[in-house]
Design a binder for these strands. Structure first.
Lengths: 221, 221
DNA sequence: TTGCTTGTTGCACGATCGTATAGCAAGCAA
DNA sequence: TTGCTTGCTATACGATCGTGCAACAAGCAA
């Protein structure tokens, strides 16, 4: 017996969906992709999962981004910008003392929202794309150059001679990245405070060593 | 018109496949998984791709490992062991001077087969699993503890006081890992020789700084 | 109220995923 | 040669993947 009426699946006066400005919708999809990437990792970030997280139809991803790859790349750019903003804000709020600004940068690297297992999942997914795709590799190179440039500036303000800035910045970037990675992967080995102390000790050693080198007391390498 | 005979797809006297000892076959599958992981990354490491690389039927993966996850975990253990062996061999071949042994460790970290884009792809895939799965996370913790323990021993031989060994080892591990990661991700920014020089300069600064601290000249942190 | 623009839905398509299983056959033992 | 053990193949299954497309409808303009 077929019913002669259709059961309403929603209140008749409530819209089935809300139209949104294209750019705003893109932002919402990027935000959803960020959450899914953080929660389920790279393998879980499918078109359907992201669309469900954003409470929209899967077709919208193709419509606004042309494909899942472009959405992931846009998410990479967005997360990178958020990390940069968090680090810049920490440095800007540290006052005028160059050494304090450098310490603020390091401290922010090991504090939320940067030192976060969810952010690590996002970053690992991106590294996978950096290896596999040239366009994402270019995004990474730009971001890394930007990070290193920021450290170089902070080091120059601390009195590091220009000739040593580049290698010192690479060293500190690598140190912070390595500590950040292990802090997120195995939080029980050391905590954020110890990561910060380790980084500070290394930076102090680096600056002292360079100052001695300038005075001619020690000359290695 | 159906032919009255069947076309032979292979010489009648040649075996269609060769039987192999179970343990040996497991090794061959792990080797194939390593190659696929390095070539195509985590997303390309499917059962079918690995089986094709090993020139066997896909069913063999399930038969010998019970599932793709166990094969990937076994591959992780195998690659970790290979890295450990390469580092140990470099240290063992460096003679008796403690400082030279530490330098050999660092140099090996930035040379083949360790500093290799293919190995990075494998490692990134593993990190994704470390985040998603507890059993792989335990594998990682064991490996990291092993690496750090090795550095701690080398540092102790270099005269670093026991109380400082732990944090110094974490610092050097993070520094080398960070340099290794960026060296593999963006080989055009700096090369292996510069990575080695940067790491050596940091280690020199660390050891000098600690020696000064012991003599009471400087006391920070 | 009417019409138009376009953001959005919902479904279908082929490809590929991991896994289970029935049966074949390689190679050793007798 | 015969028989047996078991490594191995081949196939099928359901689930899920990314994408394309036609129709729908929300919301503004007139």
């Amino acid at each position: 017996m077929t019913p002669h009426f259709v059961v309403a699946t929603r209140p008749v006066n409530k819209p089935a969906f809300t139209r949104t400005d294209a750019e705003e919708r893109r932002r919402l999809l990027i935000a959803a992709a960020t959450r899914v990437l953080a929660r389920d990792g790279a393998s879980g970030a499918s078109v359907r999962a992201i669309a469900q997280e954003a409470k929209v139809s899967p077709g919208l991803v193709t419509h606004h981004f042309g494909g899942i790859d472009a959405l992931i790349a846009a998410t990479y750019a967005d997360v990178s910008a958020a990390v940069t903003a968090a680090l810049d804000a920490a440095v800007a709020g540290a006052g005028d003392d160059p050494r304090a600004r450098l310490s603020a940068y390091v401290a922010a690297s090991f504090a939320p929202p940067i030192a976060d297992r969810a952010l690590l999942a996002t970053w690992v997914a991106f590294w996978g794309l950096v290896i596999a795709r040239d366009d994402v590799a270019r995004l990474h190179d730009e971001q890394y150059a930007h990070f290193r440039g920021g450290i170089e500036g902070l080091l120059a303000d601390c009195g590091v001679p220009p000739a040593a800035c580049r290698r010192s910045a690479i060293a500190i970037t690598a140190l912070v990245d390595g500590l950040w990675l292990e802090l997120c992967l195995s939080p029980e080995v050391f905590d954020a405070a110890e990561a910060r102390a380790i980084a500070e000790a290394q930076i102090a050693a680096l600056l002292d060593h360079q100052a001695q080198g300038e005075r001619g007391e020690v000359q290695r390498d």
